[in-house]
Amino acid sequence: MKKRAAYLVVLVAIVGTVVFSSFKNSETAPISNGYTIGDEATDFKLKDVDGSMVSLADYKDAKGFIVIFTCNTCPFAVASEDRIIALDEKYNSKGYPVIAINPNDPKVQPDDTYELMQEKAEEKEFNFPYLYDAKDKIYAAYGATKTPHVYLLQKENGKNIVKYIGAIDDNVRDAAGVKEQFLANAIEELLAGKEVTVKETKAIGCSVKV
């Protein structure tokens, strides 16, 4: 009986320790997989293909930002390039510039090196920053899992608030087949002083290579 009682005491102590440890760890462990609508998005300072360092704070007159995580290699990202260029051409002057960020680690995806990003930007004549995120992991803070993956931000009281997350439109494979322009619609609603109707859609693309 004494041995059994001692065994139970030890068992209870072990279980208690495990439970306490789990509870303690749960308090310190991340509870978010990135931003949700209404969150404040962090600023960053990342290297552009021209060698300069770019942050959202540089854009003093911007009303918001079209932050797009994209890359050189993913077929879905490549299929979106002309659409991204067109978005910046249309909305930069209206206060919503495109900020493109490559989240892929070139050690995992060798065709996404900084040098090849420079070649891509020159070849496609990107009219927006194309930033290198191999070390800073900004994509993780935002919760981007695909390329392309869009985060539409709006400046509110000095903060960059997330207003839309997801896809550029409803046909990432074929621009000619697009019926719903989710991102453009959201920007137009913000410009009109309205609340965004479709706040989230599913980002379709290649997984971020890290």
Score class of each variant (00 low, 15 high):
103 P>I: 07
68 I>M: 00
185 N>H: 12
44 F>T: 05
127 N>T: 13
97 P>L: 08
3 K>E: 14
19 V>L: 15
44 F>N: 02
124 K>Y: 05
11 L>Q: 09
7 Y>Q: 13
82 D>A: 12
129 P>D: 11
173 R>S: 15
115 E>C: 08
74 C>V: 07
48 D>V: 06
119 E>C: 03
143 G>N: 02
198 V>H: 02
17 T>F: 15
108 V>C: 04
146 K>I: 02
15 V>L: 15
56 L>C: 10
76 F>R: 03
45 K>G: 09
111 D>W: 07
80 S>T: 07
200 E>L: 00
111 D>T: 14
99 I>G: 03
133 D>K: 03
136 D>E: 15
171 N>Q: 05
56 L>Y: 10
15 V>K: 06
101 I>Y: 00
19 V>N: 09
175 A>K: 09
130 Y>V: 05
29 A>S: 10
119 E>A: 10
178 V>W: 04
112 D>C: 04
176 A>H: 09
23 F>T: 14
131 L>S: 08
150 V>D: 01
133 D>V: 05
102 N>Q: 12
170 D>E: 01
199 K>T: 15
5 A>T: 09
59 Y>H: 13
6 A>Q: 13
134 A>G: 04
26 S>G: 04
39 D>L: 04
62 A>Y: 09
176 A>E: 14
2 K>I: 12
72 N>M: 05
165 I>L: 00
44 F>G: 03
132 Y>F: 15
121 A>Y: 10
60 K>E: 13
81 E>N: 04
44 F>C: 06
15 V>R: 06
200 E>N: 05
135 K>V: 12
65 F>M: 13
135 K>A: 13
70 T>S: 02
189 E>H: 12
113 T>F: 11
39 D>V: 06
188 E>R: 10
38 G>K: 02
102 N>D: 14
153 L>F: 05
140 A>M: 11
39 D>E: 07
58 D>K: 14
73 T>Y: 06
9 V>S: 15
110 P>F: 03
163 K>D: 01
136 D>C: 06
156 E>I: 07
138 I>W: 04
192 A>Y: 09
172 V>E: 09
73 T>L: 08
185 N>F: 10
78 V>Y: 06
50 D>S: 11
120 K>P: 00
79 A>C: 08
62 A>S: 15
65 F>S: 13
205 G>Q: 11
101 I>N: 00
43 D>Y: 07
46 L>N: 02
45 K>F: 11
18 V>E: 08
147 T>L: 03
210 V>N: 15
167 A>R: 00
68 I>Y: 00
68 I>A: 00
90 K>Y: 04
93 S>V: 13
87 L>Y: 01
84 I>G: 00
